[in-house]
Amino acid sequence: MTVQTESYVMLSVVLFTLGAMGVLLRRNAILVFMSIELMLNAANLSLAAFAAHWGQQTGQLFVFFVITVAAAEVAVGLALIVAIFRTKRSINIDELHEMKG
């Protein structure tokens, strides 16, 4: 008996929800970032599961692209966090409520 695609999708949904909760509830910018990574991973898992289900590689290539874009996004995001930390001396996102630099 093999694992059903449905199980993979359900696992991916659970991980995505955990990531979304992290984004909404945590106040530390780095933690928020890690939660976004978790959400991307969950989406990747469901893409790979559907690729295996349909026997098509396109899903896997999309996972490849997502991982690459995530790497770029992390680099830019962490640079932003460092820049914010320099001006505010804090990375608590509750304190980032003014648009003035």
């Binding site: 694992v3 993979y8 696992l11 991980l15 991973n41 990747n44 898992l45 790979a48 599961a49 690729a51 295996a52 896997q60 996972v63 490849f64 991982i67």
Partner: peptide
């Protein structure tokens, strides 16, 4: 998740 990728026939991923 990497292990799950292996189970999904995607060793490269």
């Amino acid at each position: 998740i990497a292990f799950l990728f292996l189970m999904l026939n995607s060793p490269f991923l």
